[in-house]
């Protein structure tokens, strides 16, 4: 085929949608956080611990959002993750408190097992029976919360030595700040943060450097084409839900590590938070575009908005929600502008 350049040489190589959205997300987070650190330095924003608290608070949400991002990249959705998290906390507390020989390890296995079971069933219904993922996981959401209520409607605190020891673990960091008494205090992370960071790193590699990861993008981009390219579309969709279930299991465990109690009402609205974080992080609801690192930043952005709004003195509980809504709109508009503008250019 004739070697002639269809595009003028002056036009620079356009970035992929995933990359351009990621860059925007990271830039916005940095600008937002640094501005806040500068403006509200009196409220502790400039202290490293403030940042690590953001991680401590959101470790579970980071893991769960990663799972959701994977499903969304493959073109699906999962709104059962909040209910599932609650179910896992309740089940694990009952297991830890009431059963002989339970330890953090058995409760971790239990959490993963419940998550896996949900992932397998939902994935099967979505991928092999071709039922809308929204419907399947809506049912999953009701089922999980209902199941949690059936086990226990009370809030119960974990009373298990091996688990509590793990939950109280603090990872001290070489950075920190000087407190009012002039003493240097080291910043710390909880164990959950380490787990979350490992998950983010592992998934980042999976999505970028494995055949399975790329299949997720292909299936989310265009199912029919993915099939013609020789991919197993059904299995890929199935696995995306299985992975999301497993990650929610792990996320539920990390959630329990942080709050150390189980309750039906835990993780209320987590599915929406996770969707919001994924979208802010550059994952598109239409599938095929997204980035795990972006989702990580998305969760932090969402968390930071709450802190900043509070620091601004807007005490009403609705303010973080309203600000988040505005940001979401902004990101969605940005996504559609970026994608449609580029399409228009190729004549």
């Amino acid at each position: 085929m004739a070697a002639k350049d269809l595009s003028p040489k002056t036009r620079s190589e356009p970035m992929s949608d995933t990359t351009s959205l990621l860059i925007i997300t990271v830039a916005i987070f940095l600008v937002m956080y640094l501005t806040a650190a500068y403006l509200f330095s009196d409220k502790g924003f400039a202290k490293p611990q403030m940042f690590f608290n953001l991680l401590n608070e959101n470790a579970a949400l980071i893991i769960i959002s990663c799972g959701l991002s994977i499903v969304m990249i493959a073109g699906g959705i999962d709104i059962s993750v909040g209910g599932l998290t609650a179910l896992i906390t309740v089940a694990c507390v009952v297991h830890l408190n009431d059963m002989e020989g339970s330890s953090f390890l058995t409760s971790l296995l239990l959490a993963l097992g419940i998550g896996l079971a949900f992932g397998l069933v939902q994935g099967f219904l979505v991928a092999y029976l071709d039922i809308q993922p929204f419907i399947v996981t809506l049912a999953g959401m009701f089922f999980a919360r209902g199941q949690a209520a059936m086990i226990d409607t009370q809030t119960r605190t974990v009373a298990n030595e091996s688990f509590s020891a793990l939950a109280q673990m603090r990872i001290r960091l070489p950075i920190g700040s000087v407190n009012n008494n002039g003493v240097f205090v080291q910043a710390y992370m909880e164990l959950g943060v380490v787990i979350a960071l490992l998950v983010v790193a592992a998934l980042f590699v999976t999505l970028r450097y494995t055949t399975f990861g790329r299949s997720l993008y292909a299936v989310g981009g265009n199912k029919q084409s993915a099939l013609m390219l020789g991919l197993n579309v059904k299995r890929t969709k199935f696995l995306s839900h299985v992975l999301c279930g497993l990650l929610t299991g792990l996320g539920g465990f990390v959630f329990l590590l942080h709050v150390r109690s189980g309750a039906v009402t835990h993780a209320a609205g987590y599915e929406m938070d996770a969707i919001a974080a994924s979208i802010i992080g550059g994952t598109m609801l239409t599938g095929g575009v997204g980035n795990i690192f972006g989702t990580f930043i998305g969760v932090l952005t969402k968390g930071a908005i709450g802190n900043i709004v509070r620091a601004m003195g807007l005490v009403g509980s609705w303010w973080p929600g309203i600000t988040l809504a505005a940001m979401l709109c902004f990101f969605l508009i940005l996504q559609s502008v970026i994608t449609s503008r580029k399409r228009a250019k190729i004549g």
């Binding site: 450097y209 494995t210 790329r214 993008y217 292909a218 390219l229 575009v289």
Partner: peptide, 22 residues
């Protein structure tokens, strides 16, 4: 039948390699 959201190179090789890594 190619995926528009992937790169040219990926469209060329996806679904054909046996290795799990890229």
């Amino acid at each position: 039948g190619l995926c528009p959201n992937l790169t040219v190179a990926e469209n060329m090789f996806i679904g054909r390699s046996k290795s799990p890594f890229i």
